[in-house]
Amino acid sequence: MTTPATTETPSVIEHLDRGPLSMNEVAGVIARDMPAGAYANLGIGHPTKVADHLTADRGVVLHTENGMLGMGPKAVGDQVDPDLTNAGKVPVTELPGAAYFHHADSFAMMRGGHLDVCVLGAYQVSVHGDLANWHTGGAGDIPAVGGAMDLAIGAKQVFVMMTLFTKTGEPKIVAECSYPLTGVGCVSRVYSDHAVIEVGPDGARLLETWGAPAAELAERLGLARSDQQTHR
């Protein structure tokens, strides 16, 4: 009995007829990849935009950790009710079939592995899926973690939504995070303006790129993936 010496390398999809994605477009890509019928939590900030791209026929049920399943869109005008907010404390609405619950139950839904997907922002993600998104570690910065650490280790899949590079051009996918960690080996995919990148025990792998070939991005990110097949 022998095993093949090499396994087939999955191909990367390159979108070269356009530039990088806007964060709103990144939200659309995450919505595209969200499993139908998933129970999902969208973190504060950019990830909340994913909700705008989820159509009802997908059957995705949104969880907000302050105690609700079946969260609807942001409340406007008379819909604003101070007793009904999301985790970012923004007024939201409820959909038919919504359920309310207390905090211990809400976090049992995550920690207990019942939540299918959570989408979080990040300062840095390591190639092995370590997440840094709660604290810059700067002197005088008041630490505040909220539900970030519970979410990071709780959902079956953790998607990170972020720009791939800092404002000064440094990669946010790194060999080891320099910021304090939120969770270890917890991220499965990074959705960014330039690329979708799988991370995990086997390292980082580009799955889809926008505005630049995979080889060029791999070079900028310091990833050794010259063996990747590409099609255009």
């Binding site: 905090h103 809400s106 976090f107 920690r111 909220g146 650490m149 939120t182 969770g183």
Partner: peptide, 28 residues
């Protein structure tokens, strides 16, 4: 962490002397 905060109070109310949580492993 928010979930640990809730669960630590739940434990107090339920007479549990302590529990093991996966949240915050490997972090400061």
């Amino acid at each position: 962490p928010q979930g640990n905060l809730a669960e630590r109070m739940r434990a107090a109310g339920a007479g549990i002397g302590g529990f093991y949580s996966p949240t915050a492993v490997g972090t400061p």
